[in-house]
């Protein structure tokens, strides 16, 4: 497979905060159009992995390419959409409408000091349509539920037309019904060809939703199918203790 067909390629990536490694010698290849989950215990390096893929930090050793280019270039070109952890659960007294928040996802693409154009507004309308929130566009963000707000920030990430969508613990603090709708939305986006990388602490959700799963505990413990997540040996290596995996329906 030519390298441009890969969404993300990590080669022997190590990242150290001071002396201790947060990630050690991680290598993997994620093809374009993948729907991949990243699981692991607290302190496993999941957030560090996201920061590396986004190009916010550089690996201490090894190399990363995203969409065939350097992560920072891919991010600045708008090829990566990102929805950070707990953003939808923030205490929002922020005086802005859904439309304004989604449009702000095109800020960096338009360029410093340049005004938004009709194209920017059309792209943000399409993003709201894709996220199923067009009817909420004039609502103030503080008046929305957690699930609706989650969709707003996904629409914001989609406004830049990304090829790769990264979500950090998106199901945290969202009720079961909103969570179902949320994963249905991700499926639709995946069907449109967007590569989805989702970090989660919930093994059962990942087993149900993702097509492949990265098991991370500073090192890459496994790159497996959701079915293989039930393997007790894999779980013991991942969490460093015996773990029983009970699947539940979200």
């Amino acid at each position: 497979m030519p390298i441009d067909d890969h969404a993300i390629v990590l080669r022997n990536v190590t990242y150290r905060y001071d002396a201790s490694p947060a990630l050690e010698d991680v290598s993997c290849t994620i093809p374009q159009g993948a729907y991949i989950g990243v699981v692991g215990p607290n302190g496993a390096g999941k957030s560090t992995l996201i920061r590396l893929i986004l190009g916010l930090i550089a690996p201490s050793s090894g190399s990363i390419s995203v969409m065939g280019t350097l992560p920072q270039q891919a991010r600045k070109a708008g090829r990566i959409g990102y929805v950070p952890q707990r953003i939808s659960q923030s205490d929002f007294h922020f005086p802005a409408t859904v439309e304004e928040v989604v449009l702000s996802g095109r800020t960096a693409l338009r360029g410093l000091g340049r005004f938004f154009t009709r194209e920017d507004r059309q792209q943000s309308i399409q993003a709201m349509q894709a996220a199923g929130i067009l009817k909420l566009q004039h609502r103030q963000i503080g008046t929305l539920s957690g699930g609706e707000r989650q969709r707003v920030f996904i629409a914001r990430a989609l406004a830049g037309n990304p090829q790769l969508l990264i979500l950090d613990e998106p199901e945290t603090g969202v009720d079961a019904a909103s969570s179902r709708e949320f994963f249905a939305l991700l499926k639709t986006l995946h069907a449109k060809g967007i590569t989805i990388l989702i970090v989660s602490h919930d093994l059962s959700v990942m087993a149900k939703e993702a097509k492949t799963v990265l098991c991370l505990n500073r090192r890459l413990i496994g790159h497996c199918t959701p079915h293989e997540l039930g393997n007790p040996d894999l779980l013991a290596r991942l969490y460093g203790t015996d773990v029983f995996f009970l699947q539940h329906s979200h």
Binding site: R75, V101, S104, T107, G160
Partner: peptide, 23 residues
Amino acid sequence: IILYKEFFAMTLDEELSATGGIP
């Protein structure tokens, strides 16, 4: 006025705007 959209994005969420490439 010139930097309104950047100030708005940064005011909404500083980390998110930095991630998007806004200084």
